[in-house]
């Protein structure tokens, strides 16, 4: 090749194609070489300063001692420090006081959104929209009371309402009458139940749990609170168990709620989120977290 080079003395590699197409050995431009050596220098510096060589179990650590986990920890520290000023204030306040303070309320709502999403949304739906069988939290129907105190109780200690199965207690006609009455009550928000229905409701002992006015209040207290066992409010436009209506109401009457050994019984349990006596006092959520959730749930639009 080199011996019969048709273009001698022009610094080519001796490779010639198509008679005159050849490869030259010109050096790259100066700027290119400068950039090349600068990037090599950068690489060397980087290898010294940062983790680099995968030797053994751990890579070389670099003289700066930088690591992603450290950077992450620093980031967490920074955000915790930013939140500290709010968290300190929240610690000494009740849920009602927080709601009264617009700035702190906004902070609490933003903070509790994550808690609600992690712990509550699976059943109660995002925004407290509810799911079949799980109560809507955004409405103003509170079977156990909608004050911050009552909501706190519901979250911390859990709730488990009970209703007897009436399959063997009532005749089919009676069940139909009561179910029809419940539908009428629901349609009219408690104003227009049939007299037969009311008569059955009172004579069959329903008032013991649902109350004299069928609104779920066993006793109304002078301060506006009420005592309840969590029985559904039959005198309003909201169904405790979706989809509501005649068949649904009939099902609840027949098989009850949370009955053992009754197939088809309604399942309705709010777990314990605070200290749980059955688990040796272990709590899923701390008191501050529960307080934030109380504010969050109260502010869905139905809090009292």
């Amino acid at each position: 090749m080199a011996e019969n080079n048709p273009f001698p003395g022009e610094n080519n590699t001796g490779h010639v194609w198509d008679d005159n197409l050849r490869e030259l050995k010109n050096p790259p431009p100066r700027w290119w070489m400068l950039a090349f050596w600068a990037s090599v220098a950068f690489w060397v510096g980087y290898a010294i300063l940062y983790p680099m060589w995968p030797i053994g179990q751990e890579p070389t650590q670099g003289v700066l001692g930088w690591s992603q986990m450290k950077e992450y920890a620093e980031g967490v520290e920074q955000i915790t420090a930013k939140r500290a000023q709010f968290e300190e204030k929240l610690a000494g306040m009740t849920a009602d006081q927080i709601i009264a303070d617009p700035g702190l309320k906004e902070y609490t709502l933003a903070s509790a959104k994550v808690l609600f999403g992690d712990n509550c949304r699976a059943c109660h739906g995002s925004g407290g929209a509810g799911n079949p069988g799980y109560p809507v939290l955004a409405d103003d129907d509170w079977l156990y009371g909608g004050t911050t105190g009552k909501i706190q109780e519901s979250i911390a200690a859990g709730r488990k309402g009970v209703m007897t199965a009436h399959e063997k207690v009532l005749s089919p006609v009676e069940v139909d009458t009561l179910a029809n009455w419940a539908v009428q009550m629901n349609d009219t928000a408690g104003a227009g139940g049939s007299p037969e229905g009311w008569a059955l409701f009172k004579s069959k002992g329903c008032t013991a749990c649902h109350g004299e006015k069928a609104n779920g209040h066993v006793v109304d207290l002078p301060n506006g609170d009420f005592v309840s066992v969590g029985a559904a409010n039959l005198a309003d436009g909201i169904w405790r168990f979706e989809p509501g209506g005649f068949e649904s109401a009939k099902h609840t009457i027949l098989y009850g709620v949370n009955q053992t050994n009754v197939p088809g019984t309604r399942d309705a349990v709010m777990p314990v989120w605070g200290p749980d006596p059955t688990r040796g006092g272990v709590a899923k959520l701390g008191p501050e977290e529960i307080k934030k959730l109380v504010v969050y749930v109260h502010e869905f639009g139905g809090g009292q």
């Binding site: 929209a129 809507v136 955004a138 409405d139 103003d140 928000a189 436009g237 139905g302």
Partner: peptide, 11 residues
């Protein structure tokens, strides 16, 4: 949007 609307006890 979550929820789109809420039914209140007075209907």
């Amino acid at each position: 949007r979550a929820p789109l609307f809420v039914t209140l006890s007075d209907g």
